[in-house]
Amino acid sequence: MEKLSIDELEKRFQAKIDADIKIEPNDWMPEAYRKTLIRQISQHAHSEIVGMLPEGNWITRAPSLKRKAVLLAKVQDEAGHGLYLYSAAETLGMDREQSIDDLHSGKAKYSSIFNYPTLTWADMGSIGWLVDGAAIMNQVPLCRCSYGPYARAMVRVCKEESFHQRQGFEIISTLANGTPEQKAMAQESLNRWWWPALMMFGPSDKDSTHSEQSMKWKIKRVSNDDLRQQFVDVTVPQAEMIGLTVPDKDLKWNEERGHYDFGVINWDEFNQVVQGNGPCNFERIEARKKAKENGMWVREAALAFAEKRKNKIDIKIKEI
């Protein structure tokens, strides 16, 4: 094997990416590419896991057995998404346990949308419709991400997400077509979730620190602002169709651009929530820590049992 300089390796790496050749786990990659991916995939995994909490809050109070079964399946899918993603991140050498501890210590981030409370049943509708809807918009381009295991995980995730969005839309449109009280509940929920959903696409392109390099590496394929615009454009007509009003007085169709113009996002609020000062940040992390601590004995017992059984088999083999 000829020995290549870092410059040459980087050039070949970028040429592969430019030619749309996927990068696989043991291929050479720049350290910064590995680090960026580990950060992004583990944040994504944490978001799926923490994202189970706001909806888990309503499983026992779902209005019917059917709604309960659907919500349970939806939340279980999110657990699956978290697991696909942790295992994708592990292919890059990420230590799963360390990464979970980083989440618990506040060092690692997760999507700030999950720091808002779920106050009414209508929020199960808003989350599926808007939060999963925004997640789909973010994730569909990631199916073409340059890193093979991440792209493959995203394909699985996207297949499952469309069920999530539809079940949410069914909940919210049922309420919107219900009694005046039910409709008011749906509207009130939309009022609370609309802006946080728009913030899910991250800072505006001009303020986004990682975007340019990530686009070059094809880790990110569409810019934050373009995705946000796409989301507004498809969601506003859906709201109109079910008779709900998007809580934005500056919202209007711009004939010339062929897009909706919309109001200014409160980035102060976004930064506050990211920094840990959202309504539920503390509660979410506490719940995750408790889950790990209270489940630890199960993990230890299962390992001890497996060890014991293995020893028994080893002894039997020796006897033969």
Binding site: S87, T91, R309, K310
Partner: peptide
């Protein structure tokens, strides 16, 4: 299809 963590093959 991917990987996962488990204590033994059955799990």
């Amino acid at each position: 299809v991917g990987s996962l963590r488990a204590a033994d093959s059955e799990m």
